[in-house]
Design a protein around this nucleic acid. Sequence first.
DNA 1: GCCGTTTTTTGATCTAGAACAAGGACCAGC
DNA 2: GCTGGTCCTTGTTCTAGATCAAAAAACGGC
Lengths: 230, 230
Amino acid sequence: MDAAFLSEDDRRTIKRSVLCSAMGDGDFAELLASASVRSLKRSEYLFEQGDPATNLFLIVDGWVQITRDDRDGSHTLIAAFHKGDSLAESAAFLGKVYPASAQAMTDLRVVAMRASLILDIIERDRDVLAQTLASIYKKMHVLVDEIEWLKTSTLRERLARFLLEQTDGTAEAVELTLPYSKSLIAAKLGTSPQQLSRTFTELQQHGVRVKGAVVQLDSTATLRSLIAKS
Amino acid sequence: MDAAFLSEDDRRTIKRSVLCSAMGDGDFAELLASASVRSLKRSEYLFEQGDPATNLFLIVDGWVQITRDDRDGSHTLIAAFHKGDSLAESAAFLGKVYPASAQAMTDLRVVAMRASLILDIIERDRDVLAQTLASIYKKMHVLVDEIEWLKTSTLRERLARFLLEQTDGTAEAVELTLPYSKSLIAAKLGTSPQQLSRTFTELQQHGVRVKGAVVQLDSTATLRSLIAKS
DNA sequence: GCCGTTTTTTGATCTAGAACAAGGACCAGC
DNA sequence: GCTGGTCCTTGTTCTAGATCAAAAAACGGC
């Protein structure tokens, strides 16, 4: 887990996050100055259940899985996060311990920010406070809409959407590497590995070629049209 | 829409809400002192799309539906809220206009709180700020879990849960009146009226008797056992 | 390269719920 | 009381996806 630097693009990702979007440029620079960038190899732990929580994290690139380690030694997958998501907010704001572990599922870059500094910045400017609260609530509504969509969408649609999320949305034909095993993707999409496999086969008709963990999308536009509804 | 007073129980409901749970007793008393209680009859509007948003609302009793009024005159149901939920947070914190309308689906009591006063209270005490942020994030995780549960549960489970939500969770046998039309309940549960009707029939085996909008639950424990999973 | 383990794919069957259709109940106005 | 509208229920058919089972790839260690 070594230090690294931030590209201009990374900064934009961070600035767009819920907690930073309300800050002015000065505040944001101050926050970044004291933040540290961490690079992790796949399967390293970012933090473990029970560690004291002083930092919260923002993912710049890669995937993180959150698991709860039960007393009986089994690990339960709680959630998976990627680029632009933040982690461990409530534990960090309260200064408690992390209630679950976070492990890199891919090579990973995150920014670690001191929760106390974020609180300082928010506290000293009423506009920042108002906008931060507003943007968290907005995020909440977006999340609800999103998951609501999951309820009514078919597996084909969900998979198409998942694949599109892995691209940066510009190119028409893309080759990408799946961020983690197909069984996990199945879990994330709320289905079984079998069903996922069938659905990949089905998507071949729409220009999706799969070879191991490498997926070729011939036409992102076609995929997008599979989703467009609501 | 006339003024009314708050019972001890109402106060508890409010205090447990996300935005108030972090406050000290003094702050909470101050907030309540300036808050107004509004009673609405079924189908009255609490606010309408486009009204300037200075207040946010906390439901003390009853149901509210949020609808977006499209330019073509149609109303789209966005969400439905009940006891303990708060409404219109982001619009109020930003001092914008309400982006949708809120209408009472039942006789309704809400508390209207000035967003600016809430900001004052949060701003002047760092602990309140930290705990408020933490509790909003916690709420977000709960919400996500809940909706995630919806994805994997059957309609029978969802309906059982919905019925239990209408009770106060104490008595074993209850008679309740459905808060709104069955078609709307169907929509809220993510299904069609037909399917809902069948499922009600199916639940007769588990001590649920339906007569119009009146439902008798013979055994809440039985219903609870239908849900218990995960 | 070979072997055991894990992951993925394919096959076949079964079920919840969607979709289409039509009958019945309730209500308001006349 | 009759009549037209709305809401609810019942009947039937059809499909996405779950589930059980097993073959086939991929992977890590030696």
